[in-house]
Design a protein around this nucleic acid. Structure first.
Lengths: 178, 178
DNA sequence: TCTCGCATGTAACGTGTTACATGATTCC
DNA sequence: GGAATCATGTAACACGTTACATGCGAGA
């Protein structure tokens, strides 16, 4: 499932422009997928070339034409094929955990700053997901948001309960060095 | 934090070969970072070229020379610089959640299979992380593993409690179609 | 006999990000 | 006056994966 396929999927939910699709990637999809304009627009063009989606241009005053994309029957079929494939494994890359692996090399103060920032991040995600959970239409939106919510809540809770496990030793080490 | 930088970090924990580094990426690091030989070996070569690590070849009988890498003082400095930079945001891409977003398009049977597989995946991760939690040396290893554990446990629990929310409607829909 | 573990590496390829380019309108 | 929103796109670049290439020893 790459950006191209997911754009196709998004169009099964209704017509959209590239700009609107980007908003989805920034909002309700952001906790499990990201994409920039630099991948979305080329993806949409390619899907159009392949005849999987149709594009109609709406002229606008003083603005570039708005291009509204709609999925074609062949696009629906192609998307179903992609959906039925076994999902590849998740791709996760966490800078935060990579850095925390080397917590022993960091000043206590810096460590605390990192954890504070991380907690703020999780809390922001939780707020975001709580909002998207409510305005869910079908059953799948609340499910996907609920999953993210569960994960971020668990992470935040863990940090609150265990931050001392790394902050403590760092402080002791610095006190001993004085 | 890319593969190159993380390899440098791993070498702060002790000398290692490319092969051994790969094992780490498959084991204790796998829940927050992945890397293949195709990125590790070139990274190690580049670090050597840049003078950040040293490489000594151990001749072996009937095998290619084993190349043991050690970090140099300049490498430690470079790694510290990287550690002190603000962490970039996590990069997550979950095929599973992408597919679940379109659960409404899938046969109930297939949906259940996906969730079963996902639960198995989380449980395997939990077992793995419980093991790495125990054999932790400093304070940071148990912390990083504990974080992963918390997240996977929450995810598994969520799936157990809420799988019916998507499976139920799918079954109803199919019953109605008959 | 066949697979797994050890051990290193390259080349082609895919995929996506970043920065740039453009430009009006509306809100603060 | 400046930032944010709407709106589209490209080109250079970075990064990493996959598949391929090689080859022995040990255990099932």
């Amino acid at each position: 499932m790459n950006v191209r396929t997911l754009c196709l999927g998004i169009l099964t939910l209704g017509d959209a422009t590239g700009y609107e699709i980007k908003k989805l990637f920034e909002g309700p999809f952001s906790h499990f997928f990201e994409a920039s304009y630099g991948s979305i627009y080329p993806a949409l063009n390619r899907l159009t070339d392949e005849g999987l989606v149709a594009c109609r241009a709406l002229a606008q005053e003083k603005r570039p034409d708005k291009k509204v994309y709609s999925i074609m029957p062949s696009g629906r079929l192609a998307f179903m094929d992609a959906l039925m494939e076994a999902p590849g494994r998740d791709r996760v890359r966490s800078q935060f955990l990579a850095i925390m692996t080397f917590a022993g090399l960091l000043p206590a103060r810096h460590l605390s700053g990192l954890i504070d920032a991380r907690l703020a991040y999780h809390r922001a995600k939780i707020a975001e997901l709580e909002a998207c959970d409510e305005k869910g239409d079908g059953a799948s939106r609340p499910f996907v948001c609920g999953y993210g919510l569960a994960v971020h809540r668990a992470a935040a809770e863990f940090l609150e309960e265990h931050r001392h496990d790394v902050e403590g030793p760092a402080l002791l080490l610095e006190a001993a060095a004085e």
